[in-house]
Design a protein around this nucleic acid. Structure first.
Lengths: 339, 339
DNA sequence: CTGAAAGCGCTAACAG
DNA sequence: CTGTTAGCGCTTTCAG
């Protein structure tokens, strides 16, 4: 039951070549004669040899591991993103070392330290806020980091998001076009840039039309809190329409409205979410929402990170990808609405 | 922008001790005088030193990484399990290297090879079938593996599942007690032990009561296929009740029944699922189902694996944890039914 | 193109 | 308890 990994040394002996010859045939970009390669491959196959990635990492300084920090796996958007991220990275010969973070500031610091201990080549921070201290630490450690679905003021931090401001605008325009006047907003966690940007785009566009929010509440991106916010909001002076800061909360809002408060959607109230998670398209919800283009967000994230790693491409980049409003059944559709 | 990691050597110099002294103060179970430890800790803190996990892994033969193979992240059961798994492992000082597997046989082999390349200390295979070849390979490599939510005939492979046979029985008894006679089953992928066991428990219990399935269809654990299976099943000779092999499919079945076929649940048809994923309790679905005790499954999985790793505990273990039937609103409740 | 030799950063005997 | 000495398995100069 002891570790029985075959070493390059053993392969070398069997192939009748030096250990470095073995290394060369398994190192891309190293030169070895056809004959040598052949002998080595044969011996390796017979022995079941595969290079030890960790040993390689030690000397090359490249572990081919990417640390991924995630916080909200209950929100369907993240498992989906994680899967795509992992697949994309796997395709490029990297692998994901995963870290669950609690949203408490201290914990994230600890988590990043741990990640760094593993000598990852890069870090993807999904849905977590990074202090400048931390990003500074990663920079001095020479480990590039890109924020996924969250952006930071820090100008030398790369970030990929959807265009949340524009998304907020789209929702406002849609609701306005439908003739809604009394409009509410159920917000996520204010510490999140996504929340702030969506809200800013939403409110400013409303303001341009002379409309002010009649109700506002915080759901902190949690279902239970969103349900509670809904109860409160609809007890007093119910709005005709609500923009919920993400789908995860919107599902709870919908359920609360329908099954607890006995309201009809969209007849009594229009609801719009954000993300377009899988559940948003399930008939039971059929949620009108703004789509975050997960595929493109992932592709861009990986591209930026690998660029940083492999080409040491200097400038941090921040990308905001535009996503469409997906019109479904939870919000009144403006007359003559197209697209 | 170059890697600037501080080494134990540098810490040693600054603390005025040998490099091994530094190693000792950071190695649990090594002895160093209070004084030395103090000096070293101080120097380390000033320099921001942290041990390089990979280097440590090289010499100790322990990477403190666990490879986790996952296939169905769309099914809410898995993100939940993954999160718990990762947290539990993190608590024990291990970290998760994640691998997405496609269900094609060849791909899994390749994936396991890659995992092994990273010198993981153990492997958790969630929802994937392992060939005996593969498990054999892991065994010779000295890397213990435990199957999560899937079990294999191979007697020297550890596995943790819920008691799927018993779960299937519970569903059958419940449906029978409600007086249903025409009963259908929408199955998952037959290659999965979970599917086979749930079905066996279900059908055999029905048989004991002299009841035979009036309809049967395959959904392969996919929503779209489950929806298609539902359409077909309810077009001809609709059953009064259906047992769907997991919640993920059951959600699609419910939507198809209600919004496409115009049937009322549970008035026209009773539906029971399996897993008790988060969405099952959302009011829009309110699905009656059998709970898989994710927490206990995870705890057991980690315990078995670490036991194997740290104590080289020989015998493979197979655990099937009993889960309760969660009675909610999608199935007719038998008169006088308790618990 | 190829082998010999020098480490990557760390832990684990081994003497003292 | 402490420093010295070997490596872990591999890539990468460096001579040939």
């Amino acid at each position: 039951m002891s570790k029985n990994r075959v070493t390059s040394q053993e392969v070398a002996k069997r192939a009748g070549v030096s250990q470095s010859a073995v290394s060369r045939t398994f190192t891309t970009g190293a030169s070895a004669s056809k004959k040598t390669v052949e002998k080595v491959r044969k011996a390796a196959a017979e022995l079941g040899y595969r290079p030890n990635v960790l040993a390689r990492a030690m000397v090359s300084g490249k572990s081919r591991m990417i640390g991924v920090v995630v916080a909200y796996l209950e929100n369907q958007f993240y498992p989906e993103a994680l899967e795509k991220l992992s697949n994309e990275l796997q395709k490029c010969g990297y692998h994901v070392l995963i870290f669950m973070a609690k949203q408490t500031a201290g914990h994230i610091d600890a988590v990043v330290e741990e990640i760094l201990d593993y000598q990852v080549d890069g870090i993807i921070a999904a849905s977590v806020a990074m202090s400048s201290d931390l990003s500074e630490k990663c920079r001095t450690a020479g480990v590039p980091m890109v924020l996924f679905n969250r952006s930071q003021d820090d100008p030398n931090m790369s970030a990929v998001t959807s265009d949340n401001f524009s998304g907020g605008r789209k929702v406002a325009k849609f609701l306005l076009a439908a003739g809604h006047k009394k409009i509410g907003h159920i917000a996520g966690w204010q510490g999140a840039s996504t929340q702030r940007d969506r809200e800013a785009g939403f409110i400013s566009t409303l303001a341009e039309a002379g409309v002010t929010l009649t109700a506002q509440a915080k759901g902190d991106f949690e279902m239970e809190k969103a349900a509670e916010a809904t109860r409160e909001m609809f007890t007093h002076d119910p709005p005709e329409a609500v923009f919920v800061a993400n789908d995860h909360m919107a599902l709870a809002v919908l359920d609360t409205l329908r099954f607890e408060l006995g309201l009809r959607v969209p007849e009594d109230v229009s609801v719009v979410g954000y993300d377009d998670v899988p559940a948003a398209s399930w008939p039971a919800y059929d949620l009108t929402t703004v789509r975050q283009p997960a595929n493109r967000m992932v592709t861009n994230t990986v591209e930026i990170l690998l660029d940083q790693i492999e080409n040491n491409a200097g400038e941090p980049r921040r990308i905001a990808i535009d996503g469409p409003l997906i019109v479904r059944g939870t919000a009144k559709i403006p007359e003559g609405w197209t697209t």
